[in-house]
């Protein structure tokens, strides 16, 4: 009755709220942990020591190179038709403006198609995108490509409506990408409210002028580490079940939800198994990734280093979509593997979380999944998740200890059983 023992300990026993309390201590102490920042460096040091103190096996740091971008001071002030200071967040890897800023007229568009149609109007302007929110994966392309598309038609900067289904005047940052051969123009996200307002103003034929100042700067790549800790398998130690979350975050709020929760329920999964004195047949490997937010930078270098051993990976797991109350497990794998995972999830009947859905995924594990390794991720209330995603609202206040207990229990049961079954999951 291992599953019951894990659930009992995590949800009703002495380990209750432990993942929440551990997370709160770190993010209250350190705050958010941007790639290349001192905060991230300190957090890695603290976590490295904490995992050793937790008596896990083979705790070590694997060096990687990661991007180093700094936001600096930034501001956007509407000068016409009236003075209005706008809340903005520069987008990751954006260039800065000259010290005096960029002051230009605004062209408001609602889609890339509209931008192409009105390309002749864009020269020398600040393009404001007021794109409708469909869902995150569809709409995020505006944040990622907005600057490049605007630069192609001669714009001097771009301001992107935050990619979120709900807003209380909260900008949501995130990575964006430049393209070789296209001018690199400054780009920032603005609030849904300001994007809507400027759209209304423009539709009345009102001229809008904005002064944008951004000190953003890209520095040479810097050294960081993925953190690894294990419970070594007792029968097939070279075979692995990988349990993970990322330790870096954007420089907003506390980086508690994205992805402190995922990192800490992953640690909690191993702690629960250690507390119960369980030792699976295969190695349970916890990895806390670095520089996920810049596009899975740390995890890709882990893949490069470890892919020679890919046939020994039974399952890769990442929690990077919130640790609110889980509604099921997302899974990618063969029909046989899916049938086995349904059996594993049935062990969570006491928590009434037994669904196995499709789309097991994670920025840091997708490369393994694409190479054929079965992959799993937690699914919870994504609508709520994107309320706070990449915004100053990403703090401990949105986290719920009881929900984290349940998420950790699901993570521990799934990872332990798959690690202890006689056979690896079929490909």
């Amino acid at each position: 009755d291992v599953a019951k023992a894990i659930i009992q300990l995590a949800v009703y026993g002495n380990a209750q709220n432990r993942s929440y309390d551990r997370l709160a201590l770190l993010v209250d102490t350190i705050g958010p942990r941007l790639s290349g920042s001192k905060n991230l460096e300190m957090a890695i040091g603290i976590m490295h020591q904490s995992l050793k103190d937790n008596d896990l096996d083979n705790v070590h740091l694997e060096p990687v190179k990661i991007p180093h971008w700094e936001r600096g001071e930034e501001s956007a002030v509407m000068l016409k038709p009236r003075i209005h200071t706008m809340a903005i967040l520069g987008l990751g890897s954006s260039t800065g403006t000259p010290p005096e800023g960029i002051t230009a007229e605004v062209l408001v568009v609602h889609s890339f198609d509209e931008l192409k149609i009105r390309a002749s109007e864009a020269k020398g302007k600040i393009v404001v995108y007021n794109q409708a929110y469909v869902n995150y994966s569809t709409t995020v392309k505006y944040r990622i490509q907005g600057a490049v598309e605007a630069a192609k038609v001669g714009a001097v900067a771009s301001l992107i409506r935050s990619v979120t289904p709900f807003s209380i005047y909260s900008p949501h940052t995130g990575i964006q990408k430049y393209e070789d051969g296209v001018p690199k123009i400054p780009t920032a996200c603005i609030t849904v409210e300001d994007a809507n307002m400027m759209s209304r103003m423009a539709s009345r034929g009102v001229k809008i002028v904005i002064q944008l100042k951004m000190e953003a700067k890209n520095y040479p790549d810097t050294e960081s580490f993925n953190i690894v800790a294990e419970i070594t398998g007792i029968k097939y130690p070279e075979q692995i079940v990988l349990v993970s979350g990322h330790l870096d975050s954007w420089d907003v709020g506390q980086g508690a939800m994205d992805d402190g929760g995922g990192a800490f329920i992953s640690w909690e999964a191993l702690s629960l198994i250690r507390d119960l004195g369980l030792r699976p047949k295969r190695t349970l490997r916890l990895v806390l990734w670095t520089a996920e937010e810049q596009g899975g930078i740390g995890s890709f270098q882990y893949y490069q280093l470890h892919k020679v051993n890919i046939s020994n990976y039974s399952l890769v797991m990442e929690s990077d979509a919130g640790t609110f109350l889980p509604t099921g497990l997302q899974f990618t794998g063969s029909p046989k593997a899916r049938a086995i995972m349904k059996e594993v999830m049935s062990l969570l009947q006491p928590l009434n979380i037994t669904q196995v859905l499709s789309h097991g995924q994670g920025e840091d594990i997708n490369v393994w999944i694409q190479a054929g390794v079965p992959g799993a991720s937690l699914i919870d209330n994504l609508y709520k998740y994107f309320f706070f995603h990449h915004s100053h609202g990403d703090t401990m206040t949105v986290m719920d200890p009881k929900q984290m207990n349940v998420a950790a229990a699901v993570w521990a049961v799934v990872s332990y059983v798959v690690a202890d079954m006689e056979e690896m999951l079929p490909r």
Binding site: D1, V2, A3, K4, Y236, E238, Q239, S311, N312, K336, A339, I340, E343, V344, S346, L347, Q349, G372, V413, Y416, V417, D420, M421, E422, E423, M424, P426, R427
Partner: peptide, 25 residues
């Protein structure tokens, strides 16, 4: 060594695997 790899066929029937997993509950 590992009993099952992607290039090998499982040694066990699904019912056996079901029973194995049930023992964890």
């Amino acid at each position: 060594k590992a009993i099952y790899r992607h290039d090998m066929v499982s040694q066990r029937t699904f019912q056996e695997i079901q029973k194995e997993i049930a023992r964890y509950g």
